[in-house]
Design a protein around this nucleic acid. Structure first.
Lengths: 258, 258
DNA sequence: CGCTCATTTGATTGTTATCAAAAGAAGTGG
DNA sequence: CCACTTCTTTTGATAACAATCAAATGAGCG
């Protein structure tokens, strides 16, 4: 599998893979014409996205790394509202703070936003945009359910499966493993638990042969059961390209032969 | 104060008050021309909004009553993602279920949605719509923080202040009291706690002279402290009309005199 | 090798859930 | 209007879950 913070994929490819996964349709060619593969800015870990990046546009496409939408309480407690992963569009929003949790790379997404406003045949693009917004909202709802009604164990399981799926659909995971280069403290602040408890649950997942974490690499040993026990519902459609990808990973020789 | 489930306000007035509170601008006349004050459908308590209402349009304006966006887990656990209050627009969305938590009344909001698409001078309307969507999202984020990083006590405080503010801005609360005609079970499922604990926290709030609940009427005895202890941040601007309203409630004779 | 930072472990405490039962409200029909 | 039912809230006792504290171990890095 490819490194999350350093991979060779083109920004437009990332976006296309994600949007195709969300809409279930194909989006060939449209994104490639938008000059998203231009200047790539790198942001160090633990910096605030808009202030750390002098004169950045209001819309960025995250190319690599992990970003967290975070809120700080006066007494120092922190809640990470959501994780943002490669292939997602980040928008400036007065209220919230986007913090890089690893080093990250972004490209200007203004061309994309402008294309959405075009009267021209950007219909497919607009549909995908709306679908992506819906998917984001659905993930926020998942996060509410996670925090409100799932146990710590279930929460971790749910997060792992969700993150795997999100990364898989942009080509950043194998069918059963992915990279999550964040400290347990981050997972704690995302799932509303303490660092110590994250450590314990992580071990419980390993003991029960459900998932294994070795220095930022996560292996889902029993994805089926993880979904079940956390009532995980997939947010993604099966796309032609995803299906091809899945096959090529599962049976590399068969895919090569065809 | 006026009853939440039965009040004499016109749908367009409700919507205008809410939107003005959110945007901070005035929206005079525009909404009144949209024929929102037409057929009013009543929905009994505890029914699913779209299926319980034969052939309803995809967008409804909630006029009275309380609706909950709910998710059920297989084992019977329930999470209420958000409360929807009068003056808010409800949209059909495959994923989620909207359940009436009290009897409710709605009107068709399709004219409104159509007006948004108009090329004409609906600019102010569109701005308000976008601002309202932003506000909804902000409330979802608040809910995440509540569930993830606030204690049960803080959660209740936060919810009470938020609900008060939302109702106040549509004229359904006095400066310190409002009606919340839902069982404690609903509050429990909204805040991710057990019914028993809701009862206990309710009493603690009363003991500490912060808030008082008597058969679905909530009185905020110390709004200041409630905000502080729950790190509540207001989502509303102070509008001219809200200021007028506040004055007229605080000093009825002065307002009458002017 | 020695430093720092992250994770793990053990012990303890605190918060909240669960269970069971009582008390209080609110309707229903005589 | 009262007995009766049913639903909701409250209370007390106990258990489960997760936080906190403190210390040890491990990993990465100059």
């Amino acid at each position: 599998m490819i490194s999350l913070t350093q991979h060779p994929m083109a920004p437009s490819d990332l976006l296309r893979q994600r949007w195709e996964a969300i809409t279930g349709g194909e989006l060939d060619g449209v994104l490639e014409r938008l000059s998203l593969n231009g200047v790539r800015r790198t942001v160090p870990a633990n910096s605030e996205l808009w202030s750390g990046l002098g004169g950045a546009p209001d819309s960025l496409l995250l190319v690599s790394g992990v970003v967290g939408e975070t809120r700080l309480l006066v007494d120092g407690r922190r809640q990470i509202l959501s994780l943002r992963l490669p292939g997602e569009v980040l928008q400036r929003d007065g209220q919230e703070t986007l913090t890089t949790l690893t080093s990250a790379a972004v490209v200007d997404a203004i061309p994309l936003i402008r294309a959405l406003g075009d009267r021209a045949e950007m219909q497919a693009l607009r549909r995908a945009w709306v679908a992506a917004a819906r998917a984001d909202q659905a993930m926020m709802r998942d996060q509410i359910v996670r925090l409100g009604r799932l146990s710590a164990f279930e929460r971790m399981a749910h997060l792992l499966v969700e993150t795997h799926e999100r990364l898989f659909h942009v080509g950043l995971a194998t069918p059963s493993a992915f990279q999550l280069p964040v400290r347990q403290e981050v997972v704690a602040d995302l799932l509303g638990m303490s660092v110590v408890h994250v450590s314990r649950v992580t071990q419980q997942l390993r003991r029960e042969r459900l998932a294994q974490t070795r220095s930022s690499y996560v292996t889902l040993m029993d994805r089926e059961r993880l979904c079940e026990l956390s009532s995980y519902a997939s947010r993604f459609a099966v796309t032609p390209s995803a299906a091809r990808l899945a096959v090529s990973i599962a049976r590399p020789q068969a895919a090569r032969a065809s």
